[in-house]
Design a protein around this nucleic acid. Structure first.
Lengths: 147, 147
DNA sequence: TTCTTATTTGGAATAATTCTAATTCCTACT
DNA sequence: AGTAGGAATTAGAATTATTCCAAATAAGAA
């Protein structure tokens, strides 16, 4: 079995396990996002996807993204007043938004902190997800985390 | 001195302390946001402001909001793919976004947790602000926090 | 295969925000 | 008080991200 075929099988399996139809469009959108550890916008994803599937439409990219987020196969990140970005990293992590460069860095969150975070919620609040975003500036010289 | 005048003086003082001109528009926008502990959108703020200053323009509301956020007199909250909301509560707190009702509740964050949060950042990362948003559902019967 | 239903498509529509250029308003300095 | 000069405001146009729509297509079950 070729590597490409195997890849397809893996992606297809992932989609099926979420009870969604493993269409070629969904697979290629997912593949593109997982293929790079950055935080692309819908437009950027559209551009990347078009090189392997030139006929795909932007509406489909949006549809696929919605589906993938629903499934929990990717995450959604919102910066203030900027187009939504998507994140392939499903490990528990926070985002650091470098205000000087606009870059987003993933920051690992230890398990005990996650537990501590959930403890601050009053009784009756049931959190399905937690978004933690830092804003500020990062030291320019060192290379930290992913962008 | 009348209460209204005193109010004006206080608002004006707050603005001056941020090195911005205390214009009537900025004062009324700030007053409207501080007057209610909710999370209005720019459009909602525009509507509220118009009742006391009918000639104000939406562009000015946006300008004022930008200025006030810059000054740190109000905060900005972004829900996924929804218009930006503004928050009068400057105490350290998180937001709980009730996915069923769309309501936003403030959640108090203890000081030690804030310290713990900043500790997860690698050396060289300097966080100016921290945004923590929970998403999920809240028990409907009880009345928790502010919306 | 054929049926049923979900998905895709392109283009139009919507909605939040920003831009622009003209006007008006503060504030500091005489 | 009067005025110069920069900052803020205004209305409306422009931009841009996202969603809607109705028709065409494709996937999975029988």
């Amino acid at each position: 079995m070729s590597s490409a075929k195997q890849n397809h099988a893996i992606l297809s399996e992932r989609l099926k396990s979420c009870d969604v139809r493993p269409t070629p469009q969904r697979e290629v959108v997912l593949k593109v996002i997982l293929g790079k550890r950055d935080h692309p916008t819908a437009d950027e994803i559209f551009a990347r996807v078009k090189s392997s599937m030139p006929t795909i439409s932007l509406a489909t990219v949006y549809n696929c993204l919605d589906t993938l987020v629903q499934c929990g196969l990717i995450r959604q990140v919102n910066l203030e007043r900027a187009p939504t970005r998507y994140c392939p990293n499903l490990d528990q992590h926070a985002h650091f938004h470098d205000e000087a460069t606009g870059e987003i860095h993933d920051v690992h969150l230890p398990e005990d902190l996650m537990i501590r975070l959930k403890e601050v919620l009053p009784a009756g609040f049931d959190a399905r997800s937690i978004d933690l975003t830092f804003r500020g500036k990062a030291a320019p010289t060192l290379t930290h985390g992913t962008n």
